[in-house]
């Protein structure tokens, strides 16, 4: 696995939830992990909001100094540059669409020098990206904004509490077609453990279980 892992995609496709799960998984396997919250577009539901949880796993967080405050400032902290000198793995959680990916573009040449994997996260149940061609178009915009071409697709298709085997399997077909259209490998498919058991999913390819960590604070 490369040292820098970029997670980007459409708004609300589940980038932050995937970033948190990936970071926790790697940390539990013994890696030193840092999450860099590069979302400067949306002040709600960012990985920087989960610093306390991540600390429990020994994960470092680089986030805006104004994260979860009333300051809607599209700024990144100077410590963002430490991603190039840190030990272990750095996961960059990028803001949605091309608008979110511009912030990443500023680091593109140094990231290319260091070597990276960039995973394009797709959710076939997310409005405006429900067809492979729509999903492919958004990645092209993201790549233009970030100057960092994707190296793989991660399928994160789910429908919250309505997630069932059909949703996952339809999602895999959608993601395979999207990946084919983009000439990229489909790296993994996620499934939310609390809504569906792995044994119920009849599909090939790598399955990665995720916990629902990013959610509103209403539910028990």
């Amino acid at each position: 696995m490369k040292k820098i892992i970029i997670i980007y995609g459409h708004y609300g496709c589940g980038k932050t939830n995937l970033s948190l799960n990936l970071a926790i998984d790697l940390a539990q396997k013994g890696d030193k992990v840092t999450i860099a919250d590069m979302d400067v577009v949306n002040p709600y539901f960012r990985s920087g909001d989960y610093t306390d949880l991540l600390k429990e796993y020994g994960i470092d967080v680089i986030a805006s100094d104004f994260s979860h405050s009333n300051l809607d400032l599209p700024s990144l902290p100077a410590t963002m540059y430490s991603i190039f000198v840190r030990e272990g793995i750095v996961i960059i959680d990028v803001g949605g669409d091309d608008a979110g990916a511009y912030a990443l573009g500023r680091f593109s040449s140094k990231i290319k020098e260091a070597g990276y994997d960039a995973y394009y996260v797709v959710n076939g149940k997310r409005t405006l990206t429900t067809t492979p061609s729509e999903a492919a178009e958004i990645l092209r915009e993201i790549e233009n904004a970030s100057s960092l071409p994707a190296t793989g697709v991660i399928n994160n298709t789910h429908l919250q509490k309505y997630t069932n085997a059909d949703v996952i399997e339809e999602g895999i077909c959608f993601a395979q077609e999207t990946a084919k259209l983009l000439s990229l490998p489909l790296v993994a498919t996620t499934y939310p453990e609390e809504y569906i058991e792995k044994s119920k999913i009849k599909a090939e390819g790598k399955l990665f279980p995720v916990k629902v960590l990013v959610k509103p604070p209403f539910d028990l």
């Binding site: 609300g12 959710n123 149940k125 429900t130 429908l159």
Partner: peptide
Amino acid sequence: ERFLMKGNEALAEA
């Protein structure tokens, strides 16, 4: 069919 939408987007589409 069901889709995932943000509240703000759903208000607009509705």
